[in-house]
Design a protein around this nucleic acid. Structure first.
Lengths: 180, 180
DNA sequence: TCTTTAAACTAACAATTGTTAGTTTTAAAC
DNA sequence: GTTTAAAACTAACAATTGTTAGTTTAAAGA
């Protein structure tokens, strides 16, 4: 599973063969089927696991009582935590989900869209409360999420970076950089 | 070529077959070979054309005399212009370049790395001149480029948006949002 | 109208794909 | 030491892949 994630990241789902994965594991391709029932299922489990982590993280943050700006900070922390702990798998979110087949595709998109909607809701409140510069919320949410989505590739080059420092710097750049 | 770009974007290079492209064009797969000599060459031409556009744009901006902050603005405009005029092809830059074979791969990476280096140099000067908040330049360049890279997917949802307005908003969010 | 050239077609190829069937090995439980 | 179950193996399959060869059609120039 971890081997597959690394290969999917490096070559993409479609270009990764079961024989590639098997070679990485040190086994013949057919032997993989004693452990998983299809290539497609590997992708599904990887993507839905990450999506689940985000969904649960969002639930926890919504449940806790705090100012909306602190909520934004918590969301950024959440992205950093998942990126650090699941670097390969999270790299599949931006693009490889297109290879999901139904019904997994619908399930994944449902989680993703719900997450984005809630992310945006938190940002909207922060803007409405006047805690962030008055700028197009569309642009703001897109800009912040772009950076957080791409974080995995940046993090791979700075693996020794302290995670808490990274969180602070991102919070600074993405939130307080544009706060008044 | 444009058909191929659209399919590569939607399904990825590896998962797009020559028969897919042919169907889109309204022709049999073998007929494509009267016009291009291989699938790989389509990818190479698409990616290197975009890389060339960025390289030339950077050249032009470097050649002109202006304050470093205006230079950053010009770079953002460049990204927006290329994104708007080549939305499908630019979507291949973040991931699909991994399917380039040598020697095209080296050529592409050379252009990309040179561009990023020069982008970073412009930002460094702006920071050194005290025109931008004092923050980790690594994070700043990563954050700005992430947003600009993902712009194509955002733009696809807001195709009717005025391009000049979009440029201004992005400049505001990415630069003056963090200026002092 | 005839010739020529570009571009379409059909048919097929060799290689690679995900996956299955059937068999042998490994290793833990008794 | 035997039994049992998990997990490896070899061999093969049907489908799909990029691409080539050879042929027919379309269209433009003479």
């Amino acid at each position: 599973m971890l081997h597959a994630a690394g290969l999917f990241r490096k070559k993409g789902y479609a270009a990764t063969t079961m024989r590639d994965i098997a070679r990485e594991v040190g086994v013949e391709a057919a032997s993989l089927y004693n452990h998983i029932s299809s290539k497609q299922l590997i992708l599904k489990e990887l993507l839905l696991e990450i999506a689940q982590l985000f969904t649960e993280g969002m639930e926890a943050i919504k449940a806790e009582e705090m100012p909306s700006l602190k909520r934004m900070e918590a969301l950024i922390s959440l992205h950093v935590d998942i990126t650090v702990s699941h670097t390969d798998a999270i790299s599949l979110l931006p693009n490889e989900w297109v290879h999901l087949e139904e019904p997994a595709l619908k399930a994944y998109l449902k989680l993703r869209d719900a997450y984005e909607k809630e992310f945006r809701a938190v940002l909207d409140i922060a803007i409405k409360e006047g805690q962030l510069e008055k700028l197009d919320p569309d642009i703001a949410v897109f800009s912040i999420l772009s950076t957080l989505r791409w974080l995995y590739s940046w993090y791979s080059k700075y693996k020794d970076k302290d995670v808490e420092v990274l969180k602070m710097e991102l919070i600074q750049a993405l939130l307080y950089g544009i706060s008044r």
